[in-house]
């Protein structure tokens, strides 16, 4: 069985633990981390906005790109260590939600953590990227709470 775990800062341990708890340490475990191109592009833009400074050698987005690659490596190291067994690592760059959907093709299960409003049950508990991935995933999805799930009392009263 092929299991794909989407590693996101803050919420990934819940995904890794879910894989372990359900015994899905199956044949093939993959960890995916997507570097957000938007952050680097925004910093490159801020530097370009400094009119007249020329010299791309000082462009901070290059330092950011290097740093974000090592950050991705470290996150996947930590995830693999928590998983307790070797896993295939995928580091992608671009639009987060689309990269995750593309990587989920042909996978038996994709494990995703909620990343929105975690204080109550409901659709808002999914952030923008997670919403897209859940809606567009070409495979079964296991959606986990990164912390203890809110109680059923947090449901809105029926209209």
């Amino acid at each position: 069985m092929a299991v794909l775990i989407w590693v996101v800062e803050g919420s990934w341990p819940a995904c890794v633990d879910a894989a372990g708890r359900l015994g899905w340490s199956g044949d093939r475990v993959m960890l995916i981390y997507v570097r957000e191109a938007e952050v680097t592009a925004a910093v490159a833009g801020a530097y370009a906005g400094l009119f007249g400074r020329g010299r791309s050698a000082r462009d901070p987005s290059q330092r950011l790109t290097e740093a974000s690659i090592s950050v991705a490596e470290e996150l996947l190291d930590a995830a693999e260590a928590r998983l307790g067994r070797p896993a295939q690592r995928l580091i992608r760059t671009g639009r987060i939600e689309r990269e995750v959907v593309a990587a989920a093709t042909g996978v038996d299960v994709l494990i995703v953590a909620r990343d929105g409003d975690l204080s109550r049950l409901g659709p808002r508990s999914l952030g923008r990227h997670t919403r897209f991935v859940v809606d567009h995933a070409p495979c079964p999805v296991l959606l986990v709470w990164p912390r203890i799930a809110p109680s059923v009392e947090s449901l809105q009263p029926p209209p």
Binding site: V43, R58, P60, A67
Partner: peptide, 10 residues
């Protein structure tokens, strides 16, 4: 922009 931003990212 040049010096602080990369540090904050890291």
């Amino acid at each position: 922009v040049v010096l602080l931003t990369p540090v904050v990212f890291v």
